[in-house]
Design a binder for these strands. Sequence first.
DNA 1: ATGTATGCAAAACATTTGCACCTGG
DNA 2: CCAGGTGCAAATGTTTTGCATACAT
Lengths: 141, 141
Amino acid sequence: MENQDLRRVGLKVTLPRMKILEILEEAVQPHLSAEDIYRILLDSKEEIGLATIYRVLTQFETAGLVERHNFEGGQAVFEIDRGKHHDHLICVRCGKIVEFYDAEIEANQQKIADAEGFKITDHSLTIYGECSSESCKEGIK
Amino acid sequence: MENQDLRRVGLKVTLPRMKILEILEEAVQPHLSAEDIYRILLDSKEEIGLATIYRVLTQFETAGLVERHNFEGGQAVFEIDRGKHHDHLICVRCGKIVEFYDAEIEANQQKIADAEGFKITDHSLTIYGECSSESCKEGIK
DNA sequence: ATGTATGCAAAACATTTGCACCTGG
DNA sequence: CCAGGTGCAAATGTTTTGCATACAT
């Protein structure tokens, strides 16, 4: 129950926060921009200001509930943090996003950071490419 | 001689372009934002508009002369492309940037993309952490 | 009640664009 | 000369902020 998640991180349980958390948890495509969330809320007749969405997402990020990704293309996207670290493969044509995890890559990153005397706080690996799905090739998107 | 680089990619040799290319090639810290370049030009008494810098950098990127990186923190940074691909390790405290290359990571990325049916066009790996330099620890920056 | 949260509008940024003027080949 | 380049100001798109009002506890 997400109410608990909110209380646990010290945030009051309010309607905007619950709705936004719900959308992030249930989205089919879990990588959403603030604007995406705004549109989804409008579609479900919820009147929540865009400014509130940005504020809430930033609070969620600080609280560790969501991750913010700065992929190419202007808008940041947010994704619920389910505790399983992963990186992303993004199709530059259709926008499809595939998550992946590679233990060897992770290990090598650690090795490199150690060698340079860095204590890792975060890292992001994003591979851009063209996927092979039919709909993408046809440009149907 | 950078005049040749410019001609080679089909750009007229103009003062702004030469100056910007020169700055990118000679900078001690080769990862510069458009604003950084603007400031450097101002310091050397060159009156070049910020809009021109953005236009020129975008042209350079298209021509393959420079790479644009979207690290965290709003501004994109540009780096001259010397043909040697590498990734970045960035200190979140003092901003220090270390470049690295790891053949195993590269190979693993290719393996993952292949497995998902993606043809890689680009990729970016950035590790954020805290470096161990004395000046950084002391917060002198 | 009271400290927080929200909504709105305005501000703040980074980046792009329109347009009149200038310049390199 | 003339296509292309530049400077300036204005436009854009995203994200943040100030402030008065509304809400959770």
